[in-house]
Amino acid sequence: MVLPIMINRAGITWDPWDEMGQLQQAVNQLFSDYTCTPSDFPSVNVMANDNESVVTAEVPGIDPKDVSLTVSGNTLAIEGERKPETAQAGTVYHRQERGFGKFSRAIRLPYEVESNAVKATFSHGVLRIALPRKESSKPRRIEVQAE
């Protein structure tokens, strides 16, 4: 079957195959994050500059003591557990939307980090992890000498 190439009002050629390709790409991107770990909890933001990466994670209702962080090379692993509500006898649940249980998530960072200098803070249910870049992984400028 030959699909017609259409031209829209702006005069731009519309190629249905191209559109399909874009959709495929978008779907692949959507799932690419979850190939290592199936969990998307906690939600994380990753920011970085030349010297430091910062990872923030939303972990509401989790005791900082129940979270463990592991750094190896350029991978940060967040593991923890959200405890269920302690229900007294005779409690009737109307809604239970807040999940509980163990979680783990691995995040790839843009470069290797100095694992001894990693700092993590916890405030109002948000975990913020600052990971300084390893000195040896910093780019070095090499001068080209003219003969």
Binding site: A87, Y93, Q96, E97, R98, G125, V126
Partner: peptide
């Protein structure tokens, strides 16, 4: 926000997840 709502004989409890809110 995700919530839990439960009740006992004397009280109704609501818990809502609001990360980042002080």
């Amino acid at each position: 926000p995700a919530v839990d709502i439960y009740e006992t004989d004397t009280d109704v409890f609501v818990a809502a997840d609001m990360p980042g809110v002080d």
